[in-house]
């Protein structure tokens, strides 16, 4: 095809362009952050991360992430089964609705929760009258995180489940296994990687959620801070080291989760194939 020498140079140029773009856009900023965070050495970085405020913030983030992940994993698994295995009126609509949180800005997600559950909200005023506070406290933050992470598990599990089919389940039933045993022994192991990937994305997104939490946590000085709120609130202050340290920690956790899961999957699949 054409002039081989020219196309070889074109190829090199394109690779260079793409790799350069990736480095400039993604790698360099990441390294810049790490460098800033570790500018004073590892000791101050560690101290900043272990400060009382930072630890409290990470504790809150972890508790919210735990609840949102468990709830949305159960929901995602159940809903994927419903979408793939059941035929009912409005299935296409339900299928679209589950993706909706992807299209909603986190700020708008927060706003909607305030409108519904806030002190003057549609449901909130009744809840508040009953002494139950949702927005501007822990339940509101959990709700916000749950909202933005609804689609992940469903989206990852549905295609795997569809590809899996029902033959293997039917065989298990003819071999005498009941519904539960079939689910645990046959279905779940077959969709585990899709599920694991969905859960990982849910965890990563929960750890990093910011906009919706910002709205839902309100404009209170010294409010309950999650890790991301802590970063946002301290970066402008006198001690930005804490913000930088927390940023590196947060990004590191999510990234290790994502890459780690991929590595484990590759290893296990290689084992089952060869």
């Amino acid at each position: 095809m054409g002039n081989d020498r020219a196309s070889a140079w074109g190829r090199r140029l394109l690779v260079g362009l793409v790799v350069g773009w990736f480095a400039a856009l993604i790698l360099v900023p990441t390294l810049a952050l790490a460098r800033t965070a570790l500018a004073g050495g590892f000791r101050p970085f560690w101290d900043a991360l272990m400060s009382a405020d930072a630890r409290r913030a990470f504790g809150l983030t972890l508790s919210i992430t735990a609840v949102a992940t468990v709830v949305n994993t159960l929901f995602g698994l159940a809903f994927a089964l419903v979408l793939v295995r059941q035929k009912f009126w409005g299935r296409a609509i339900a299928d679209g609705l589950v993706d909706l949180p992807f299209a909603v800005s986190p700020i708008i997600a927060g706003l909607m929760l305030v409108i519904v559950y806030g002190p003057n909200g549609w449901l909130g005023r009744h809840l508040e009258a009953a002494g139950f506070k949702v927005v501007y406290s822990w339940p509101g933050m959990v709700l916000a995180t749950m909202f933005v992470t609804i689609p992940f598990v469903v989206r990852e599990v549905v295609p795997v489940l569809r590809e899996f089919g029902i033959d293997q389940e039917e065989v298990a039933r003819t071999l005498g296994a009941g519904r539960w045993r079939t689910f645990w022994r046959v279905t779940l192991p077959s969709i585990r990687w899709g599920l694991a990937y969905g859960v990982t994305l849910t965890v990563a997104r929960s750890l990093g959620e910011f906009g919706a939490l910002l709205v839902v946590s309100g404009n209170i000085l010294g409010r309950t801070q999650t890790a991301t709120l802590y970063i946002h609130d301290t970066i402008e202050g006198f001690h930005p080291e804490g913000a930088y340290a927390a940023s590196v920690a947060l990004a590191g956790i999510s990234f290790v989760l994502l890459i780690g899961m991929e590595l484990v999957r590759k290893r296990v699949e290689a084992h089952e194939k060869h």
């Binding site: 003819t174 071999l175 005498g176």
Partner: peptide, 16 residues
């Protein structure tokens, strides 16, 4: 199904 005591073989094997 699980109480019928039938053995079933599928076209596409359906091995676990």
């Amino acid at each position: 199904v699980q109480r019928r005591g039938v053995g079933f073989v599928f076209q596409h094997y359906a091995l676990f």
